[in-house]
Structure formats: C-alpha cells, structure tokens
C-alpha cells in the first residue's frame, strides 16, 4: 500500500520487526511514548519558561490528573472489549459529582458516596438492559441515556444551589501524601489491579473477551451473553461514578460541564492503549498508559499555549494515527 522507495529493504524489515514488537506488546511501545513525551515536554518547558517539567512534582501531578480519565476509560475499556462503546460515561460521572456533593451535607459523606456509586451503577444497568436485553445498538443507547441524564441534571442544577464538596472527597481528588503521592491513586490503583487481574484470571474476564470476539459462539457455548453485557455496562457506570467523585473533589464544585471534556479522551485512551474497537482483544494496562499519554500531551499543549481548537484537532489526529498504526500491525501477519 505504501509506495516504498527501492532501497528500503533493511529499514522496512526493521520497521516490520518494530511493528511486531508493538503489536505483541503495546505496553512497551506505549511506555516509551509516554517517557518520550515527558522528555519533549520538559525540553519545551525549559525553552519557554526556563523551568524543568521532568520533576517529581510534575510526574505526581500527571498521575493526579490522569486518574479520573483513566477511571472513565476503565469502564470504557470493558465495554469496548465486548465490542460496544459507552458515550454516557461523562454524564454518568457528572451525575455522581452532583449526587455526592449535593447529598453529603444532609446525609453524611458515606451515604453520599454510596448513593453516587449506586447512581452510576444504576445508569450503567439501564444502558446494559437496553444493549443486552433489548439489543439496542450501544452507541444509540448510551448517547440517548447521556442526553436524558444531562437534561435531568440541568433541571436538578437549576433547582438546587451549589452544594459543598465533602472534605474527604476534596482530599481524594486534589491532595497528595508523602509530598508526591496523589490520594486518588489510593482509589485508582486497586481498581486498576482488580481490572487487570480480573480480565486475565477470572471467568468473568474470559467471558468479556469471548463476548466481544464472537457472541454467537458464546451462546452456543452456553454463555448467557446478556448477563455478561449487563454486568459490564453496570460496572462501567460504577467506574464512571468513581471518576466523577474524584473530579468533583478536584474542582471543588459540581457543574454540568465537569466531565464532558473527558468523554472523547476516554475513548481515545482505550484506542491508544491498543484495545480493538470491534472487541475481543486488548486490556486495561494499555488504557492506563493511554490516559497518561493524553494527560502529558495536554500539559504539553497547554505549555505551548495551544488553543482549545488546536487541542481538539490534535486529539483527532492522534486517535486516527494510532488506530491506523494498530490496524497495520495487526494485518501484517
């Protein structure tokens, strides 16, 4: 397909070998990209303001910022592994943000957090019912639910005054301990470990991959596909709610646009991480790196004073370029 020049035999072979490594172990390549991007940002920052970017503080900040995105992308990863996509993760997170900050004062923080999680799980369950039982296309179902939730939230936000964010949530979302460790890692790391291990070493994880790969085969193997999908969407809602709680802690107040900017990056992070949008292959490890890469990239663009418009265009180009690269490596053999 690519019009290669005649003398590229060796570099082409080397490129193919590199592609094989990438396709077999996207994590290696992605880690490299992450580190390289960090170094580039450092260089640019030094050139611009004379300050270093490659500092423990900035690394810690990157992880702090990446956590909500990575959690939104966690649910997204599970859903995309089954061959679907969830475009309601941002509004679900927003719902959790409103619920956790709006009910904490009257009912206590614990109640508020549980309620927020329950809302997330519930919204996900509705998505799941639509997708799994009524066989609605996931895109439509989740976009529809997202539009319904946003409408409801708009009404809610008009009738309520801004509520206070509980201290714990605030700390979780924006503070660090031991100077460099963000509190949100305490939430993110266990969930990440659970997902990575669960996908590999649990029957449910196997079924997620299986359903994404071939639902007909799953049915014939006795798998009730709807059960798998239902739980996946519900879990996605719950993880989105966790992300929403971290976001409201970080922003110190809930507003309607609190999670919206993360919707498309959540898909981008999964795609960058090497999960097939058609389902059946991938994993959460790549997604984490995808989220980190996007976060550093965002910092870089901010340092470069890029407009919101330019950022968006770049995001688009990156998703496209990486998806293209993955498509090439997987069709190579």
């Amino acid at each position: 397909m690519s019009a290669g020049t005649p003398q590229v035999a060796t570099p082409a072979a080397r490129l193919r070998a590199a592609q094989r490594v990438l396709s077999d172990n996207p994590a290696i390549a992605l880690t490299f990209v992450f580190v390289a991007l960090f170094v580039v940002t450092d260089i640019v920052n030094r050139a611009q303001s004379g300050k270093a970017f490659l500092t423990p503080t900035q690394v810690s900040t990157t992880f702090l910022y990446a956590a909500p995105l990575a959690l939104l992308a966690a649910g997204q990863t599970l859903v995309m592994l089954t061959g679907g996509v969830d475009l309601s993760v941002a509004t679900t997170a927003t719902t959790a943000a409103f619920v956790s900050s709006g009910t904490a004062h009257d009912h206590g923080t614990g109640y508020a957090l549980l309620l927020a999680l329950a809302f997330g799980f519930g919204i996900g369950l509705v998505n799941g019912i639509g997708v799994a039982i009524f066989r609605v296309n996931p895109l439509i179902m989740t976009l529809g639910i997202s539009s319904v939730t946003l409408g409801a939230l708009t009404i809610y936000s008009q009738t309520r005054f801004v509520a206070l964010v509980p201290n714990i949530v605030n700390t979780l979302g924006s503070s660090r301990f031991f100077k460099y460790v963000p509190y949100d890692l305490l939430v993110w790391a266990p969930i990440a470990a659970l997902i990575i291990l669960g996908l590999r070493f649990s029957g449910f994880g196997r079924m997620i991959f299986a359903v994404g790969d071939n639902p007909v085969a799953c049915r014939l193997a006795g798998v009730r596909v709807w059960q798998v999908l239902l739980l996946v969407y519900a879990l996605c809602g719950a993880f989105s709610a966790v992300a929403g709680i971290l976001l409201v802690g970080f922003n110190d107040a809930a507003d309607l646009g609190i999670a919206a900017p993360f919707l498309l990056p959540s898909v981008a992070a999964v795609v960058i991480g090497g999960t097939s949008i058609l389902g059946g292959s991938g994993g959460y490890g790549g997604t984490i790196l995808g989220a980190l890469i996007l976060t550093v990239l965002d910092s870089l663009l901010t340092i470069l004073n890029a407009s919101q418009a330019l950022k968006q265009i770049l995001y688009g180009a990156i998703i496209l370029a990486l998806a293209w690269l993955y498509a090439r490596t997987s069709s190579g053999d």
Partner: peptide
C-alpha cells in the same frame, strides 16, 4: 474510530 477522530478535527 475514524469518524470519531474527524469529529474532533
């Protein structure tokens, strides 16, 4: 995926 990317662009 492509049209999602173009959405951004």
């Amino acid at each position: 995926v492509v049209t999602l990317a173009m959405l951004f662009v």
